[in-house]
Design a protein around this nucleic acid. Structure first.
Length: 283
DNA sequence: ATGTGTTCCTGTCCGC
DNA sequence: TGCGGACAGGAACACA
């Protein structure tokens, strides 16, 4: 599911229930997801006030009054649902939660927030807030796409000399943080760049177009509540709807939507992942 | 240092 | 319907 727009959608959905609110009780229903949960996580969450709810790349960060920050990663199938939204098996009394409801936060304001993750590629960790940037999951991340640090000069330097296809380079979180398979395909389609083109062999003119294109695609997707292919849900259980606006991703065999292009969207596999593109207008 | 393939896990869809 | 295989938003890790 979650690339930057989906994570941002979830963060915004959680804001009214979490920011400024106290975690009255935390329930941790299994010892691990992708990695073991931090020691005594339930105890370290219980009683803490959420001072701020932020996002870095595809991570949600909740700064707690204890001086620790809760890091939340949704992996491929993670959901954060308020008051049991969309989990049919879930009961508000918490006695019979759904089988993939791994962590449940009961907020003092009355909201119940459930972390549901069928595939368990998600993760949670607790990190001293003043050491957050040194954390191993965060310390190699490239710039946020909406930040000033992400610009033409930076991107040219980051791509320079790289022999890997641009598709792989933009998926590399050290180059730019937050893009995933869907939005890389969409960005490359919008900019007319073939996913197969070597990252270091894109003209300066075209690298320049990548920066605003990345921002625009992500912005459009955030405004649509993200993309729901299978797992993504907003915190109220609703689907995102950016999937209806895809120009390339998941459109194998469909007509290219580029003006005056008569091509057809094609699927190829790069580094084990599907790339969707138009061989006619993406060069 | 780079680049690529494998792996974690569950669920869904498609063809036979 | 049932069964097997392909595939799915991520990304660490092992290896060339």
């Amino acid at each position: 599911m979650p690339e930057l727009p989906e994570v941002e959608t979830v963060r915004r959905g959680l804001l009214p229930a979490m920011e400024g609110a106290k975690i009255e009780q935390a329930l941790v229903r299994r010892p691990d997801l992708r990695w073991p949960f931090p020691e005594n996580m339930a105890d370290r969450l219980t009683g803490q006030k959420v001072l701020a709810l932020r996002r870095r790349s595809k991570y949600i960060l909740a700064d707690l009054s204890s001086g620790e920050t809760l890091l939340i990663h949704l992996g491929m199938s993670g959901r954060m649902l308020i008051d049991g939204a969309d989990t049919a098996e879930f009961h508000a009394d918490l006695k019979t939660p759904g089988k993939h409801d791994h962590v449940v936060l009961s907020m003092a304001g009355g909201a119940t927030i459930t972390f549901n993750d069928a595939r368990r590629f998600g993760a949670m960790d607790l990190i001293p807030s003043d050491k957050l940037e040194e954390h191993w999951l965060l310390n190699k991340l490239g710039p946020e796409p909406f930040s000033n640090a992400f610009n033409e000069t930076y991107l040219s330097a980051a791509l320079k000399g790289r022999n890997t296809p641009i598709k792989s380079a933009l998926l590399d979180q050290r180059v730019v943080a937050g893009l995933g398979n869907i939005y890389v395909c969409e960005v490359l389609h919008r900019t007319g760049i073939s996913p197969k083109r070597k990252a270091g062999r894109i003209s300066a003119t075209r690298v320049k177009t990548l920066v605003p294109a990345i921002r625009q695609v992500l912005q459009d997707a955030i405004e649509a509540g993200g993309s729901s292919l299978r797992d993504h849900r907003q915190t109220n259980g609703e689907l995102g709807y950016f999937q209806h606006a895809f120009a390339a991703y998941d459109r194998e065999g469909a007509a290219c939507t580029t003006t005056n292009c008569t091509g057809q969207i094609t699927r190829i596999v790069q580094s084990g992942r599907s790339s969707f593109y138009c061989p006619t207008c993406q060069r």
